[in-house]
């Protein structure tokens, strides 16, 4: 069937399309490759602009400096805790809202949907939220990071759409005949049937919490409670690389330390990414269905 001959125009079209996509991919990958190569290179080669594609005089020196940085490990640990707690809270809130909203005869469905949707278009903003966190005495605690803004309207709608399409009414009816109530049905039947979407949610929220820096920036004041992203900000943006190495060649290795830091901070997500990509895409696909 598909042995149609391509016309000249189609051949040009195909080639141009392929070429442009190759250029696009190269533009995406090149800066990343450069950073990784730079982080394994001799810092002097980096400073003199000799690193272009592959590492020059490979060495782990820069990584030693990063791992000796006093705050990297603490903040790494903090970030792991914040990510786990935050993701748990986010996923729980999302499930608890999405399931009732997905049930046809749920009393108050319209009202609760409106309560949810309004927050998408109107919000109190940075300062009233800050004052609230202050009032609740949550400043400089983990709760300031994991609670405000931890429920995404978009994800809730994605999850609701999933429940509508995969948990049919018949299933519910037969469970109710056996004497189950909504909560039991949700926990024993609906949730186990929703492993795929749960994976999507854990990943969506997990990455968001791992990468988030702004709430910590606003609410945290003790250095020992900083998440990784705030320490990164000091190193990458404010150029504060000198605490690490000691000695006179800080200026020389500063740029290289940044490279190695970027790699260290991004490796966990990049390692998981290839395995998780299909779940992410699936999540967006479900979301794009009109629910």
């Amino acid at each position: 069937m598909k042995t149609q001959k391509l016309s000249v125009g189609d051949k040009i079209f195909k080639t141009a399309n392929g070429l442009l996509l190759i250029i696009f991919c190269a533009l995406i990958l090149y800066p990343l490759l450069w950073i990784v190569s730079g982080s394994f290179s001799d810092p002097f080669a980096l400073m003199t602009g000799k690193v272009h594609l592959w590492p020059v005089n490979p060495t782990l020196r820069l990584y030693k400096v990063v791992f000796m940085h006093p705050d990297i490990w603490t903040s790494y640990g903090n970030t792991i805790v914040y990510t786990i707690v935050g993701t748990f809270i986010s996923v729980a809130l999302t499930c608890l809202a999405a399931y009732p909203l997905s049930r046809q005869e749920f009393f108050g469905k319209k009202f609760f949907t409106a309560v949810l949707m309004i927050t998408m278009f109107f919000s109190g903003g940075m300062i009233p939220t800050f004052l609230l966190v202050q009032q609740l005495n949550m400043l400089d605690t983990i709760w300031a990071i994991v609670l405000p803004g931890s429920m995404s309207v978009y994800n809730t709608i994605v999850m609701r759409t999933f429940f509508i399409t995969t948990i049919p009414k018949d299933l519910e009816d037969s469970a109710f005949l056996d004497g189950a109530n909504d909560i039991q049905f949700f926990g024993k039947i609906a949730l186990p049937l929703s492993k795929a979407i749960m994976a999507v949610m854990v990943l969506f929220y997990g990455v968001t919490h791992w990468n988030s820096w702004f709430s910590a920036f606003l609410y945290m004041s003790s250095r020992e409670r900083y998440p990784l992203q705030l320490i990164l900000r000091e190193i990458l943006i404010q150029g504060n690389t000198s605490i690490a190495g000691g000695g006179g060649d800080n200026d020389l290795i500063g740029e290289g330390v940044k490279f190695a830091t970027m790699v260290v901070a991004t490796v966990p997500i990049m390692c998981l990414y290839p395995f998780l990509q299909k779940y992410f895409t699936k999540g967006v696909m479900i979301g794009s269905l009109k629910g």
């Binding site: 809202a97 009732p100 749920f106 109190g124 009233p128 004052l131 609230l132 429920m151 909560i183």
Partner: peptide
């Protein structure tokens, strides 16, 4: 009949009231 679903919904509802609607009310500053 929806009491169990309402119970579930209460958790995110209270969350939204506290962390979204209280700041909206606070906008009066």
């Amino acid at each position: 009949r929806s009491r169990y679903l309402l119970m579930m919904m209460m958790v995110p509802f209270l969350y939204l009231i506290i962390f979204q609607y209280v700041p909206m009310y606070g906008v009066q500053i």
